[in-house]
Design a protein around this nucleic acid. Structure first.
Length: 434
RNA sequence: GCCCCGGUAGUGUAGUGGCCUAUCAUGAAGCCCUGUCGAGGCUUCGACUCGGGUUCAAAUCCCGACCGGGGCGCCA
């Protein structure tokens, strides 16, 4: 039975164990050599005093190239001089996979590595515990979302990622050849999750990839990301939807602090549970706030990146990390959002986390005639949405929902500078490999 | 897509017309050292993104391509 750096305890002292990992570092002092072996959970020190081990093992250790995979069997010995409190005196060592030299980038080098170099050699980058830990937190986040929504009677769904038309029109879609027909990679499960609202599956969610062919080039955009979508029927207002997201984000972040403590320590992130309830700002109020801070913007305009950041700073002054911006102009919102009659606004919301939008949603237009009107107003070709529209013609309850960018949430939660840090193999305008 | 900045050993950098046979660190190869943990000491190795141009002379100046960083836009 293989041990790892985490599972060796005082009970193993003076006993023989076998460990396997990457040779992180060899320090040869002549009469004694130290091999630092790294595995998923940490490092163990293999201590090789020349007089106590065979010349073959001494030779094998001192000639090891960094990052080779080795398996070591030896006796565990208590040592006050080692951080872990113990070391292993080797009796056998097998090089299972030697590493070539030099490394394309160092795992523990004392020099910086640029982000581009890191992503070109992501397999090597991920050997750093602080990088790997981000994905343990991301995995935990997914599981917690699952847990929360299951507790709230949501059904997990899987909608097609190969589709014939998009939710917002054609320009942001990736085109693919589908047996000679034109198809697209789905930019959102929007149409499908709404159709399900007419079925009795009245609370659904999906966590899956979304594809956007936007020519965006920022630290918060990628062309493939994980979208956490939810939709609920029989709602009274969008506040029902907002309450669900608020509960979910509160649950996720507080549990990440608990259950992810070890990984968070590796990353060096101090996660703060946002103050709840999250303040609700109307779009008008938000515009007024940034205007008041001297930012030039007209009512009706989008806040823009700077406005969004500025609002984040203003909210942070009162200790608010998350807040809602509701009732955006209907003109700026997609066709499926319900208009607030008698105003230029809509029943919609954005959830901002430290000056960045992580989620948006609202109440949907479920009234067939009004939906058709709105689609015509947005210039959509009704015939390509027939499959969707039909589900509104035979009994569709009032409903609302959201989409939340999982990576944006993880990024903001961990305070990371770039969304790419939260994606193993990010896709953007210039990166398709690896 | 726009604006600004950049591309030099495996990695990260210094060098902005001749003093470059290109700096430093890290790394790699090797040697010395019995308690290292950013080990230390010594020796060696290794680079100017590509294509044009200007000049007696280009890593350095100009043009183009490709790539990257920061910001914006588009957008989530």
């Amino acid at each position: 039975m293989l041990h790892d750096s985490r599972s060796i305890t005082v009970n193993d002292y003076e006993k023989e164990v076998t460990v396997e990992g990457w040779a992180q570092e060899v320090r040869n002092l002549g009469g004694i050599s130290f091999l630092i072996l790294r595995d998923r959970y940490g490092v163990v020190q293999i201590t090789a005093p020349k007089k106590k081990i065979t010349p073959e093992i001494m030779q094998a250790i001192t000639s090891l190239s960094r990052e080779s995979v080795v398996r070591v069997t030896g006796t565990v010995r208590a040592s006050a001089q080692v951080k872990s409190g113990y070391e292993i005196i080797p009796s056998a060592l097998i090089v299972q996979s030697p590493s070539a030299t030099p490394l394309p980038m160092g795992v523990v080098d004392k020099v910086d590595v640029e982000m581009d170099t890191r992503f070109n050699h992501r397999y090597m980058d991920l050997r750093k515990p602080e990088v790997r830990s981000i994905f343990e937190i991301k995995s935990l986040t997914m599981r917690l979302i699952d847990e929360y929504l299951a507790d709230n009677a949501f059904v997990e769904i899987f909608t097609p990622k190969l589709v014939a038309s998009g939710a917002e029109g054609g320009s942001t879609l990736f085109k693919v050849d589908y047996f000679g027909k034109v198809a697209y990679l789905a930019q959102s499960p929007q149409l499908y999750k709404q159709m399900l609202m007419s079925t009795g599956l009245d609370r659904v969610f999906e966590i899956g990839p979304a594809f956007r062919a936007e020519p965006s080039d920022t630290a918060r955009h990628v062309s493939e990301f994980i979208s956490f979508d939810g939709e609920m029927a029989h709602i009274d207002s969008q506040e029902d939807v907002m309450a669900m997201i608020e509960g979910c984000t509160q649950f996720v972040i507080s549990e990440v602090k608990e259950r992810g403590a070890r990984a968070l320590e590796m990353i060096g992130s101090e996660v703060v549970l946002p103050k709840a309830p999250y303040p609700i700002l109307s779009y008008e109020k938000a515009v007024g706030m940034v205007q008041g801070a001297g930012f030039k913007i007209e009512l009706g305009e989008d806040l823009g990146t700077e406005g969004e950041k500025l609002l984040g700073d203003l909210m942070a002054q009162d200790g608010n990390e998350m807040y809602w911006i509701v009732e955006y102009p209907e003109e700026a919102k997609p066709f499926y959002i319900m208009e607030k009659d008698g105003t230029p606004y809509s029943y919609s919301f954005d959830l901002d986390y430290r000056g960045q939008e992580i989620s948006s949603g609202g109440q949907r237009e479920h009234r067939y005639d009004r939906l058709v009107q709105r689609m015509e107003k947005k210039g959509l070709e009704l015939s390509s949405f027939e499959f969707y529209l039909n589900s509104f013609a035979y009994g569709m309850p009032a409903h609302g929902g959201w989409g939340l960018g999982v990576e944006r949430m993880v990024q903001k939660m961990l305070g990371l500078p770039n969304i790419r840090e939260t994606i193993l193999f990010p896709r953007d305008r210039n990166r398709l490999v690896p």
